[in-house]
């Protein structure tokens, strides 16, 4: 009898994963990266981003295939809206809270979340030590999506320093040639 593998599954069918299982796995990933990075915060963030990037490329294909008959956006704003809406919904089962453009630098966009993001919910350092944001993993995913949509950009996850809410902002800074061609 032939065993069914993950490749035989229907791609259109949506699946849910246990959040708890995700947290344990993510916790192990962070610990693994931390050991590899010799406890260097920036190096850890870079590694998390690196892990997220190939995921992003795959997610772009998958979500486009599922929701929009493989049609992709060729406009920066549309692409960001796509990340903010359908993609966020696939990843976290909700829309991202805000999508803004920086008023001074037009090549910079911000996607923000009101509640602590999935990656930061439990994986956080004691109060005061805000230099490390595990949302770097999600930032890597966004970067991967934008790269495979041909809008190369640098995405970083930062904490917005207001109240105690630990809001995470994903800062999307497009490369200068990306912006020139599309604006």
């Amino acid at each position: 009898m032939k065993r069914t593998t993950v490749y035989d599954r229907n791609l259109k069918a949506k699946r849910e994963v246990s959040v708890s299982a995700f947290h344990f796995l993510f916790s192990e990933i962070v610990q693994y990266c931390l050991a590899k990075a010799n406890s260097d915060a920036q190096e850890l963030e870079r590694q998390l981003e690196e892990l997220g990037q190939p995921l992003g490329a795959k997610f772009l294909e998958l979500v486009c295939f599922r929701d929009r008959n493989s049609k992709k956006d060729i406009n920066i704003i549309e692409c960001l809206r796509f990340i903010h809406g359908p993609l966020w919904k696939t990843l976290f089962n909700k829309n991202a809270d805000e999508l803004e453009q920086n008023t001074e630098e037009h090549d910079t966009f911000m996607i923000s979340e009101k509640e602590p993001s999935l990656c930061n919910q439990f994986a956080c350092l004691p109060k005061g030590d805000d230099y490390l944001n595990c949302g770097a993993f999600v930032a890597g995913i966004i970067e991967g999506i934008l790269a495979s949509a041909n809008f190369p950009a640098k995405v970083s996850a930062i904490f917005k320093n207001d109240e105690e809410s630990r809001k995470t902002v994903f800062l999307v800074k497009f490369n200068s040639d990306t912006i020139d061609g599309n604006y």
């Binding site: 708890s20 947290h23 344990f24 993510f26 916790s27 192990e28 990933i29 962070v30 610990q31 931390l34 439990f122 994986a123 956080c124 350092l125 595990c134």
Partner: peptide
């Protein structure tokens, strides 16, 4: 088990 064991730090 949520806040402590799932915290990688």
């Amino acid at each position: 088990s949520d806040y402590v064991l799932k915290n990688p730090f």
